[in-house]
C-alpha cells in the first residue's frame, strides 16, 4: 500500500514538473500555430487551443 502511494506521488511529481517546464518553454520563432488545421477539432486537452474558443 505504501509503495502505491510513493509511486503515485513520484509519477505525479514527474508529470507536473515536465508539464510546467514544457509550458514555460516558448515555441521557436516561426512556429506560430496555424489554427485552420485545428478548426474542426473539439479536443479540449490540446494546449494549442486558444482560450477564446471555449
Amino acid at each position: 500500500m505504501i509503495y502505491a502511494v510513493i509511486w503515485f506521488v513520484l509519477i505525479c511529481a514527474i508529470y507536473f514538473t515536465l508539464y510546467i517546464l514544457n509550458h514555460r518553454t516558448p515555441a521557436p520563432e516561426g512556429c506560430e500555430f496555424e489554427s485552420p488545421a485545428c478548426a474542426g477539432c473539439h479536443n479540449i486537452a490540446c494546449t494549442h487551443r486558444k482560450d477564446d474558443e471555449s
Binding site: 515536465l18 514544457n22 521557436p28
Partner: peptide, 14 residues
Amino acid sequence: VIASLVQFLEMLLK
C-alpha cells in the same frame, strides 16, 4: 507516463 512522455518530447523538439 504517456502524458509526461508527450510533454518531454515536445520540449525536446522545441
